Lab assay of single mutants.
Amino acid sequence: MAEQVALSRTQVCGILREELFQGDAFHQSDTHIFIIMGASGDLAKKKIYPTIWWLFRDGLLPENTFIVGYARSRLTVADIRKQSEPFFKATPEEKLKLEDFFARNSYVAGQYDDAASYQRLNSHMNALHLGSQANRLFYLALPPTVYEAVTKNIHESCMSQIGWNRIIVEKPFGRDLQSSDRLSNHISSLFREDQIYRIDHYLGKEMVQNLMVLRFANRIFGPIWNRDNIACVILTFKEPFGTEGRGGYFDEFGIIRDVMQNHLLQMLCLVAMEKPASTNSDDVRDEKVKVLKCISEVQANNVVLGQYVGNPDGEGEATKGYLDDPTVPRGSTTATFAAVVLYVENERWDGVPFILRCGKALNERKAEVRLQFHDVAGDIFHQQCKRNELVIRVQPNEAVYTKMMTKKPGMFFNPEESELDLTYGNRYKNVKLPDAYERLILDVFCGSQMHFVRSDELREAWRIFTPLLHQIELEKPKPIPYIYGSRGPTEADELMKRVGFQYEGTYKWVNP
């Protein structure tokens, strides 16, 4: 592979701008107003304001973009700056750019259920340069409990009458099928589907988006991507930290609602779906819905739930269990780990287990898709061969690698495990991989909904998990304890083995 010439960040961002501006969906010269509902909250200060700053800094926003914060707290732009700027990672050389960014910011205080507050917000936006005809993007960085009041008031008082209007809704989209349907029906009564952007930030990850290209742009994968060759698929999300004093919020939802029903299920769809007619948003989402419709409700015998306990040999936070978090209700049975087996009941995947695993306070930070292939028929190497695996590593250190057998150097035919490896950090030294939120917010500006969740996708996802969630809430089974920093409950490994996964433990990928 030829040595790549190092590029400056300015040059890299210039390439990104060229890609972005050559499309006809990006209205570079139009006025846009980006409204952050819930501007005083954690999500706004840690993710949304920093993301908008990065896009502005790199010249990736339309030229005439204004940012308006809205929340109940009586704040000023200076207050917003004070709480969000520490997350910007701005350099001293960017000081003038930073001043320009905050000059485009404003803030309006108001209630979430008060019509007069929204009329005041609308008047404020109209007073901005060309504000009355601007395109408006409303980001709901809010708890779902206020979605209905907020969307109703936005629709009645704050819509642009000339430009387009788009609304970005953060997960969780309800707690179960019934609450999700209620919320979807409410929002759909106010906005068209092409105006609604239900954001799952995992769909903005580079390697998640790469799944489609790997599958449908490489001839070698087509013939082997089926039940005849693939023994099982494992989708993993692991965090090495616990709730760390923020367990009160987590306890309301648990690990299945927080990660599995959305992030992991979306990745499953991209692995299992048929080739779409095109890369058009609805063509892709149509195929994802077909996959979900082929999955039956989760069966309790295919589920393992766990909850982390303190590690007596650990240090600091590792010595504390979930129930030691003062914000967690006493005696909570909320799971911090889950392993679930699903089956896609169609011709391509009949009988292939899709194993979804996620948890907190585990032994490493990792998100990946792992396809394990069947054993080689007619073994001539005296059971020395391990199964081939194709691994798409989402985070950290984005990579695609194939675990395969090669001859060990020497005189004899002794096979050993090795890999074919594409590590993004080595291959793409001159490429700026956008943060997931950067990519998705740019998608909203461009009107691309491919990486957002459609209402029928959402409904099918909740259909699969709601009976299990209701059973857990009714019966309150005690989750299996696992030690902070471990791989999780051993019962999860036993479940995976029972459905056909072979864990060798003899080879570990190392970032080159």
Rank of each mutant, 00 (worst) to 15 (best):
E19G: 12
Y197P: 02
S84N: 08
V208Y: 04
V146F: 05
Q209A: 09
F237H: 08
R198P: 01
N64M: 07
F221K: 01
Q161D: 14
F138E: 03
S73T: 14
T10E: 14
A149S: 14
S184L: 08
P86F: 07
F56D: 01
E18W: 07
V213F: 11
S123Q: 15
G204Y: 03
F253Q: 01
L214S: 06
S189Q: 13
V150W: 03
I36D: 04
Y118S: 08
L211V: 12
N210V: 02
K97N: 06
G131D: 12
Y139I: 04
A6E: 15
V146P: 05
E239A: 02
M212E: 02
Y147S: 00
S40T: 12
V146Q: 14
K97S: 08
I187P: 04
T243C: 13
M207C: 05
Q195I: 05
Q195S: 10
N165Y: 06
K238L: 01
N218A: 04
D176T: 04
R81K: 12
R17E: 15
D228M: 10
A109H: 15
F241A: 05
D42V: 00
L121R: 01
D24C: 10
L190R: 13
I35C: 08
R215Q: 01
N229P: 00
W225A: 01
N218I: 02
Y139P: 05
N185D: 14
L60N: 07
F237A: 07
C232W: 01
P240G: 10
F216R: 04
S160Y: 09
Q22G: 08
H186N: 10
A149N: 14
R215I: 02
N122A: 14
E206C: 07
A44F: 00
F191S: 04
V12C: 15
E93K: 11
F21R: 15
H32M: 06
H27G: 09
K97Y: 06
D100M: 11
G110D: 06
F191W: 09
L130R: 14
S40W: 04
S40G: 08
N165H: 10
I255P: 05
F173M: 07
D181M: 10
Q178Y: 09
I199E: 04
L16R: 09
L75G: 07
L96T: 13
N135P: 08
E19Y: 15
T51D: 04
L96H: 14
H124D: 12
E93H: 14
I196S: 04
L43E: 01
I15S: 07
F56V: 04
H27P: 10
A71H: 02
E63S: 10
I230K: 00
V108A: 07
S184P: 01
E18G: 13
F56Y: 12
R182M: 15
T65N: 01
M125R: 04
E193T: 03
H129V: 13
K89G: 12
E244G: 08
M207F: 01
I167P: 04
T145I: 06
T151H: 09
A141L: 00
L61P: 00
A71V: 01
A115Y: 11
S157V: 13
G254V: 01
I196A: 02
Q11Y: 14
S189E: 14
P144R: 02
A217Y: 05
D58S: 09
T145W: 02
I168T: 12
Y249R: 01
G69H: 05
L130T: 14
F66W: 10
T10N: 15
I80Q: 08
N229A: 08
Y70G: 03
L214P: 02
R104A: 07
F26M: 12
L177A: 12
T65Y: 06
S117A: 14
L235V: 09
L98N: 01
D114H: 11
K171P: 03
A134F: 09
R227Q: 08
I154V: 13
G110K: 03
P50D: 01
N210G: 08
G14M: 15
F88V: 06
Y70S: 09
I234C: 11
E63W: 09
K238T: 01
A39C: 07
M207L: 11
R136V: 09
N153D: 09
E18D: 11
N153Q: 13
L7D: 15
